[in-house]
Design a protein around this nucleic acid. Sequence first.
DNA 1: CGCGTTTCTTGAACTAGTTCAAGAGGTGGC
DNA 2: GCCACCTCTTGAACTAGTTCAAGAAACGCG
Lengths: 191, 191
Amino acid sequence: MLAPLLAHIARYVSLTAAEAELLEAYVVPHTLERRAHLLREGEVCTATYFVVSGCLRTYFLTEKGVEHTLQFAIENWWLTDYASLDAHAPSAFFLQAVEPTWVLVLEQRGQEELFGRVPQLERYFRLVLQRGAAAAQHRVKLLYSLSGEARYRQFASLFPAFVQRVPQYMLASYLGFTPEFLSKIRARMGE
Amino acid sequence: MLAPLLAHIARYVSLTAAEAELLEAYVVPHTLERRAHLLREGEVCTATYFVVSGCLRTYFLTEKGVEHTLQFAIENWWLTDYASLDAHAPSAFFLQAVEPTWVLVLEQRGQEELFGRVPQLERYFRLVLQRGAAAAQHRVKLLYSLSGEARYRQFASLFPAFVQRVPQYMLASYLGFTPEFLSKIRARMGE
DNA sequence: CGCGTTTCTTGAACTAGTTCAAGAGGTGGC
DNA sequence: GCCACCTCTTGAACTAGTTCAAGAAACGCG
C-alpha cells in the first residue's frame, strides 16, 4: 500500500503505471510502535523514511542527557539523517516514532539503480529537498526573530492539532526552550 | 570561465564535453562589489547563484531594523531563496555580497530545459541539496547544544580565516547573539 | 479499574545574554 | 593624506529564559 506516496509524487512529477510498479519493488512498508526507534546515535543511517501516517522526530542528546528535538515529520514528509546517509558515518541523531506510525522505507542501496530506471524520481527528490531547504531557512529565521513566547504562539496558531498530539517537552526543545518555560507560557496565556 | 563550477560538478557526477558545453549556455558570470545586492526583501528570486570567489550571505531585517545573517556562502557553494524561487513569491530575505564576489548565475527559467537535456545535472543538484540539508541539521544542533561563547569558539577554531574576513556584526547574528556580546567574548578570550 | 510511569506545573534563585549609550579605532574612497 | 563612515569596545542596568526540586495530574497498559 504505497498509494499515499504515489499521490505525493504525483504532485511534483508524473510516473507511468510501469514506473510506479517499479518503485513498488524498492519501497518497503513498516509499522512502528509509539517510541520505537528507526535509528540511534552511533548507528549508520541506511534509508530514507516516508511517513504515511503518524509522526516521526529527529532528536539528539546533550552531554547531560537532555533530549533536543530537531525536526518533526508528519504525513507526507520524508525524514533521514543526510549526513550519516551520505558519508556512511555514525549518526549524531536518533530517529523515533512519536506515536504509532506507518512508514515507507527506501533503502539507500537500491536508490541509485531506481533513479537510473525512473529518472523522474531523481527530479521528485530534488524538489522535495528544495522544499526542505526552504523550510529550514524559514525555521532559522523564526528562531532568530521571535521570542520564545512568540514562537510558541505562532506555532500553536499554525498547528493547533499538532500541539495536542506531541508531548510538551518535545515541542519545547523543538521551539528552543525548556519544558518548564513552555508550561509557564501556557499558564500566562490561560488567564 | 566556469571551470570552478565544472570542477565542482565533477566531484558528484561526470559530464561529457558536449554536456559541459550545453551548460555553458545557461550559466552567466557576474561580478559584484562589496555590499552589492542580488536580491532584496519583497523581490521575487529568479535564479540560483554559485560562488566562484568571494562571499555571499542571506540576511533579513527585524521590525527594529536589525540585520540577521542566516547563511554565508563561500567558494563552491550555491545560494538562493528556495521559498521565493519555488513559489514565485516575494522574498523575506536579502542576498548580498559580503566582499567583492564573482558568481555564476543560473536562471530558474531555463533550468527545467537544461535538466531535460543533461539529466546528470538533476542528480548533481539533488546531491548538493542533500549536502545542504545535512549542513542545516548540523547548524540547528549547534544552536541548541552550545552556549553563545562555545559556538563562537568552535566556529573560530574551524574557520579562523573566515572570522577575519567578515564584519563581526554579521558573524554575531549568524551565531545567534549580539555584536556587543561577541565583543565581550573576545575580550574574555584575549586574557 | 487501578497501578506505574510519563508528563506537566509551580515557585524561588539564578545567569547568560540584551539593551542603550557614548566613545574609540579602522579603512576605504576621493 | 584626510575625512566620513563603518565597525568595534566597554560598562551599567536589565530581563528572558534556566535550573532545581517537589508535587500533581494524566495516560496507557494489563
